[in-house]
């Protein structure tokens, strides 16, 4: 190796050599980052600098909501109404699902996609219906989540829909490094789609396979867009962030039922306020036999399975 301490000053030859190297380097960098030309609309400065949901003042929230309306209109060609629904006092939501009655028709899955503006291509679904064999076992490894029967229910099977369990002790919330996901006072676990950095640690932590990642830019046809939107709920998501079931926050916080419950043809789905002793869910938890999925993990779900008889 030559001696690094020899310092010869700038000669014409070395100048030419250096310029050639620099030019080649610049050309290589340009070629390397060429795909960035296809980037299209980059996020605005306001979007880039937006604060966490919990730090926004009511005035700032107003500005943010109207900016999001404009963004959605620009991207999807339809102007939505985006609101920030707040939790109601004295309400804690609980979901109960009747395993005796569910027939596995997956109407809930599709009603959820339509209500909550999930990406259609690739299609993102919050509810996964497991077809389980009636063979004296309760082994999730024997379940079939992608069954394609012409008619349901199939003999010898029962069905178990799984979605976010809105745990009281949620592993996903615990692991998030930036607090982009948290539990609201009414028990709903939400995601701030503008704060999530897309590390997917929550997805690894969830024992119910309830969280979904936007692996590419979501696409939703304009005519299928539900324009009644909420900030923490069904507004369109961004590429590279997490999303999940939020108990149809834009419905339930306005006193309506979740879309999956409304569409269920068998009445297997029950939803209500557990703090109200006269609610349907309070009755079920007091009088029915209940199953908590993976109870041993200590996640304390607000989602219960129950059985008739």
């Amino acid at each position: 190796m030559s001696d690094p301490s020899t310092d010869t000053g700038v000669t014409r030859r070395s100048f030419l050599r250096t310029s050639t190297v620099l030019a080649a380097g610049a050309a290589a960098v340009a070629a390397g980052i060429a795909p960035l030309r296809k980037l299209g609309q980059f996020s605005s400065v306001d979007e880039f600098l937006q604060k966490h949901y919990k730090e926004l003042t009511p005035e700032e929230m107003k500005t943010v909501l109207s900016r999001i309306e404009t963004e959605v209109e620009r991207q999807y060609g339809i102007r939505p109404h985006v609101r920030d629904y707040k939790p109601m006092n004295g309400v804690e939501y609980v979901y109960a699902l009747n395993l005796t009655r569910c027939v596995g028709c997956r109407k809930c899955v599709h009603a959820c996609v339509a209500e909550n503006n999930q990406s259609r291509n690739p299609e993102i679904q919050y509810i996964r219906v497991l077809k389980m064999p009636n063979d004296g076992t309760f082994d999730l490894e024997k379940s079939d989540p992608v069954y394609t029967a012409k008619a349901v229910p199939e003999a010898g099977s029962f069905y178990m829909p799984v979605q976010c369990h809105h745990c009281k002790n949620p592993p996903c919330v615990r692991v998030c490094p930036v607090k982009a996901t948290w539990q609201e006072p009414d028990g709903i676990t939400v995601v701030d789609y503008n704060w999530c950095i897309g590390c997917r640690y929550c997805e690894a932590a969830c024992p119910y396979f309830a969280r979904r990642f936007n692996w590419s830019t979501p696409s939703i046809p304009k005519e299928q867009m539900n324009t009644n939107m909420s900030y923490l709920g069904n507004r369109p998501r961004y590429k590279g962030v997490m999303e999940k079931c939020h108990f149809c926050i834009q419905r339930t916080r306005a006193g309506r039922y979740p879309a999956c419950l409304e569409v269920c043809p068998t009445g297997s789905r029950k939803f209500g306020n557990i703090l109200d002793p006269n609610s349907e869910v309070s009755y079920i938890l007091k009088n029915k036999r209940v199953l908590i999925l993976k109870e041993e993990l200590g996640t304390l779900p607000r989602f219960f399975y129950y059985f008739d008889v």
Binding site: F48, P177, V178, G240
Partner: peptide, 25 residues
């Protein structure tokens, strides 16, 4: 590996919101 590398600053203590000591990340 980040879905939103542009939001990297959310992770910087003092500027973003740092979930410490809760999150192992």
């Amino acid at each position: 590996d980040l879905g939103r590398p542009d939001r990297f600053w959310h992770l910087i203590p003092g500027i973003g919101i740092f979930h410490f000591p809760g999150s192992m990340l």
